[in-house]
Nucleic acid binder design. Structure first.
Lengths: 199, 199
DNA sequence: GTCTATATTACGATAGAC
DNA sequence: GTCTATCGTAATATAGAC
C-alpha cells in the first residue's frame, strides 16, 4: 500500500490535520489561516484539495457517523437477548469512539449552524433512537431495573459514553485495542452495575 | 424588589439574552450582530452596557463556577462519611446545573482560545479534582467497588452529570425544584447502583 | 500543487449625534 | 440609552503566475 510518509496532501491527509485543529480551537474558532499554518501550506493550496472549510467538516462527521452506524449492523447487535445486545452496542460504541476519536469528537460538538451540521445532528438522533429501542426491549424483558425511565437512562448512558472524548488521549506505544477494550468494560460495568459496593 | 418587566437593559438582563444565543450558535459562532438582533438593540448599544463579547462570556462562566463551588461549602459536602458526601455533591451538582442551566452549559463548552476561557477551564479542573478526592476517600472506606479506577469513575460520573446540559429543558409551568430533585435522584441512582436488575 | 496577491464580505469595536 | 455611520482588522474564497 502507500507508505506513511507523504509530502503532498490528499483530501484525506489534509482532513487529519484539519480535524485536529478543529478539536483544539472549535470549528467556528478555526480560520483557514489556522489550518494553513497547521498543515504547512498556504490557504489557497487548501482550496486545491477541498472546496472549503465545510467540506472538511462534512467528511469528518461522515466518517464518525459511518463508524457508529456500522456497530448496529454487527451480529452482536442484532442477535441475542436485548440486554446483551445493549451491552454489546455500548461496548462497541465506546471502541469506535476511541478508534475514531477526533472524528467523533467533532461530531459531538456540532451545533447546527449550517446545513451540514443540522444533517449531522439528525443522524446522531437516529442512532440514539435505535439504541433507545434496544434498551426499551431489555426493560420489557425485566433485565433492567423497573424504576428506571428508559428515555432518561439512554441519555445518561450516552452522556457517559460520549464524555470520553473530553479527556481520553491515546497512550503512545500502547496496545490500543486492549486499552479500548478495558475502557469499554469499565463503562459498561459502571452503567449496568453502578459504583457502589453492596446494593 | 425590582419588577420583572424592564424596557431598558442592564448587564444582567443583557447577559440572559446573550447566553441563550451563545448556547444556540456557540460562542465563536455568535457575532455582535447576532446578539444585537436577539436583544432588539443596536450593536453599539450593547457596548454601552458591557465592554464586549468576552465580558459576557466571563460573567456567564463566573456565575456557573460560583454555583458549583458553593456546593462544596454546604454542610452535606463537608460532614459525614465520604460516600455520603460524594452522593450529596453529585445530587447538588445536578441541581445547580439545572438551576443555572444556560450558564453551566456555556461553561462546559468553553474551548480555551482566550484568557477568559483558559481561566474557566482551570477552575473547572479544580472543581473536578475536589470531587475526585472525595471519591478517593469513599473508596478507601470500602464503600465503592474495589475494581473501580477512581480517576476514571470521576470522569464518567461527571460525564453523565454534565451531559444533562445537552438535552434537559425546563418544563413550562412545572415545579422545577421537584423536577430537578427527581432528576438528581435518577442520576445518583444510576451512577451508584447501575441499570441492571440483579447484580 | 503550491505560491503571492487580492477581491469581498463579515466582524469587533468606536465616534459622535440625539 | 440608543442610534447611524464608520474604522480597522480578519475572515472566506478566488485569480493567475510558476
Amino acid at each position: 500500500m502507500t507508505t506513511a510518509r507523504r509530502d503532498t496532501y490528499t483530501p484525506e491527509t489534509l482532513l487529519t490535520v484539519a480535524v485536529q485543529v478543529f478539536n483544539e480551537r472549535g470549528y467556528d474558532g478555526t480560520s483557514m489561516e489556522h489550518l494553513s499554518k497547521a498543515a504547512g501550506i498556504s490557504k489557497s493550496s487548501i482550496y486545491h484539495h477541498v472546496a472549503g472549510k465545510e467540506e472538511l467538516l462534512r467528511r469528518a462527521v461522515s466518517r464518525a457517523l459511518d463508524g457508529l452506524f456500522a456497530v448496529l449492523e454487527e451480529p452482536g447487535a442484532i442477535r441475542g437477548r436485548p440486554v446483551e445486545r445493549v451491552e454489546y452496542v455500548t461496548r462497541r460504541t465506546v471502541e469506535v469512539l476511541l478508534t475514531e476519536l477526533p472524528y467523533v469528537t467533532l461530531l459531538l460538538r456540532v451545533r447546527g449552524n449550517t446545513r451540514t451540521e443540522r444533517w449531522a445532528l439528525e443522524r446522531r438522533r437516529e442512532f440514539d433512537h435505535q439504541v433507545a429501542d434496544l434498551l426499551k426491549a431489555a426493560a420489557a424483558d425485566g433485565d433492567l431495573r423497573a424504576d428506571v425511565d428508559i428515555r432518561l437512562a439512554t441519555r445518561l448512558l450516552f452522556g457517559m459514553v460520549n464524555s470520553l472524548v473530553e479527556w481520553y488521549r491515546p497512550h503512545p506505544g500502547a496496545d490500543h485495542d486492549a486499552d479500548h477494550g478495558q475502557l469499554a468494560d469499565a463503562v459498561v460495568h459502571m452503567a449496568f452495575d453502578g459504583l457502589r459496593t453492596a446494593p
